[in-house]
Write a protein that binds this DNA or RNA. Structure first.
Lengths: 109, 109
DNA sequence: AATAACCGGTTTGTGATGCAAACCTATTTC
DNA sequence: GAAATAGGTTTGCATCACAAACCGGTTATT
């Protein structure tokens, strides 16, 4: 019944935020991606991408490896197992909530 | 190509916020609902529900009518035409983004 | 060999936001 | 007539997203 909407309200905001939802969704389609690739993909500025990644890393949803390719620094981002599960689950929640809500009827006044 | 993810990043945050997504989604299934009904449905406190409604009203996505039922004040909330369109559109966006992203493949490095 | 421009980011500053708690006015209950 | 309840609004604070400044190194430019 109304558990539907309470569940909606309680969606994990760390993942729900649009930029991070985009990052996580993109990562879920590949094993890893580098910083610049993600930046171009999402259209975020470096600064914002950097801080979103930091939050996802703090939450242990992604792992970040920094190394040098030749003389250039390179940051490689990948989903952790927990992250892969979390993003899949988030989309499932949204999908089922949307579906269930579409056939929900308010209890007659 | 990457437009997918840029579109995700650009989701309307006014509607995307979980509590408001729940409010709008619930409203989309009925013509109108009163304050307490929405409060029980979403589990929000009065204060937070009130300020979320104020934001939605400012954006002209909902209309709020206050009247008295007998001696008690009563606040009736309904979607505006724009609001009805906006919430439908938001779910469509999410749905199609999720679907498209699931078959997206990163361009080979 | 300076210097300017670029690459790949991180840190900082700030305005907006979500939430909880306090408050308010009127009514009902004890 | 005091206390609880209904139906909200306002206030205060802590967090957050975004832009802009910064930074260490590298590659042109002169």
């Amino acid at each position: 019944m109304s558990a539907l909407f309470e569940e909606l309200v309680a969606l994990d905001k760390l993942i729900h935020e649009p930029a991070r939802l985009a990052i996580m969704t993109a990562l879920s389609a590949c094993q890893s991606a580098d910083f610049l690739f993600l930046q171009r993909l999402t259209g975020l500025t470096k600064g914002n991408l950097s801080s979103h990644l930091a939050k996802l890393e703090d939450a242990e949803l992604i792992t970040i490896e920094k190394k040098f390719i030749g003389k250039k620094p390179n940051t490689l981002v990948s989903l952790s197992p927990a992250g892969r599960e979390a993003i899949a689950r988030h989309w499932q929640q949204l999908e089922s909530l949307r579906h269930n809500a579409s056939q929900w009827r308010p209890p007659e006044a």
